[in-house]
């Protein structure tokens, strides 16, 4: 659990280090002032680590595809790999990642030497994509908010639905 310094206790004698300090657990609202906890019921302290500030420069699909300067989505004005079906479906998202060498796999278990992505969906509509890092944790860009490392199911909920499809490719050096 990450802690945040709330203040200092001690004599005001000009000593520049603390004699004692108060530490309190960081809350969801402090980590994600632009998000509502109710949309991420499983994103609890201890299930994630913040890895970036808020930015609109890229979205979750781009981040999963290792691109931090573009927003990917099958919508006019957004990047979508040329030749890939232009629709919001698991099949189209699978095609998009196939252009990067990914193929479908049964689960998100860590396999040394392989890099995985997971597509979260509500029904058959893709809502989010996350990428597995070498430790076995997952990295996600939460909309226009921050990047986090998290447990697979930590971002499941009303916004992103649940893991619907796993893809993998040989990890690149």
């Amino acid at each position: 659990m990450r802690l945040r310094l709330r203040g200092w206790i001690g004599d005001d004698d000009g000593i520049s280090f603390p004699k004692a300090c108060i530490l309190t657990p960081m809350g969801f609202k402090e980590d994600f002032p632009d998000l509502e906890q109710q949309n991420y019921p499983s994103l609890l302290p201890g299930t994630y680590t913040l890895t970036s500030d808020c930015t609109d420069d890229y979205n979750c699909v781009a981040w999963a595809a290792d691109d931090d300067s573009t927003c990917w989505w099958p919508w006019e004005g957004y990047f979508w790999p040329p030749g890939v079906t232009f629709e919001e479906s698991l099949a189209a998202f699978t095609e998009a990642f196939a252009t990067l060498g990914y193929e479908q796999c049964p689960d998100g278990d860590l396999e040394p030497g392989w890099e995985k992505v997971v597509i979260f969906a509500k029904g058959s509509e893709p809502k989010h994509v996350a990428r597995q890092i070498e430790s076995g944790a997952w990295t996600s860009k939460l909309g226009g908010s921050r990047d986090i490392e998290h447990e697979l199911e930590a971002v499941s909920g009303p916004y992103y639905g649940k893991p619907a499809l796993f893809l993998k490719r040989l990890r690149r050096l």
Binding site: C71, K127, L142, G143, Y159
Partner: peptide, 11 residues
């Protein structure tokens, strides 16, 4: 902005 906080879908 408050309605799309964590939304990834451009749609």
């Amino acid at each position: 902005r408050s309605g799309i906080g964590g939304v990834s879908s451009a749609t």
